[in-house]
């Protein structure tokens, strides 16, 4: 899919749509991943994972609808995903959640770079902020410092 995203300096509805599809792919992975995050947490600590799962489902569905309005094919959910590392503890779960939020952040930033319509940028910057706020909580739970990212979604 990266090959579908032009990077010749030209921004148009085509680049925007391709970047939107990449965000959908990242959101599918996040929804899948939060199932694993929740399952690895004690029952009384699953609230943030459930809230994040709902948030990612909602924005994914919103993006799918937006793509449908454009006549663009939505990106289907993959039949399966591979974990980047074993998730065997609450700390592992929080670390996976950080990975998920940072993954969607990268996709949102890519969309900001490739978009041409202010309402799309408005959506992207709002969701990027929401992802970073969630990531702050998960970095703290994972014992990572600093808990904030100076430039979420951008290469370090």
């Amino acid at each position: 899919m990266a090959d579908d995203v032009a990077d010749d300096g030209v921004r148009d509805e085509g680049t925007e749509t391709a970047a939107l599809r990449a965000v959908v792919a990242a959101e599918h992975a996040a929804v899948w991943g939060y199932g694993t995050v929740g399952a690895a947490l004690p029952e009384d600590a699953r609230g943030p994972a459930a809230a994040a799962d709902t948030a990612h489902r909602d924005v994914r569905d919103r993006l799918v609808a937006l793509l449908a309005e454009r006549g663009a094919d939505p990106v289907p959910r993959e039949p399966g995903y591979a974990l980047p590392f074993p998730v065997l503890s609450a700390v592992d779960a929080a670390t996976l959640a950080v990975v998920l939020e940072e993954g969607v952040s990268a996709a949102w930033v890519r969309l900001l770079d490739q978009s041409v319509q202010p309402p799309v940028r408005e959506l992207a910057v709002a969701e990027l902020g929401a992802a970073e706020v969630r990531a702050v909580g998960w970095r703290s739970a994972a014992g990572r410092t600093p808990v904030t990212d100076p430039l979420p979604g951008l290469p370090g």
């Binding site: 930033v109 978009s115 970073e132 706020v133 702050v136 430039l151 979420p152």
Partner: peptide
């Protein structure tokens, strides 16, 4: 746009 959005998100964090 990408830079400003990223900084905005960071400050929310």
């Amino acid at each position: 746009a990408a830079l400003l959005g990223s900084v905005a998100a960071s400050l929310r964090g």
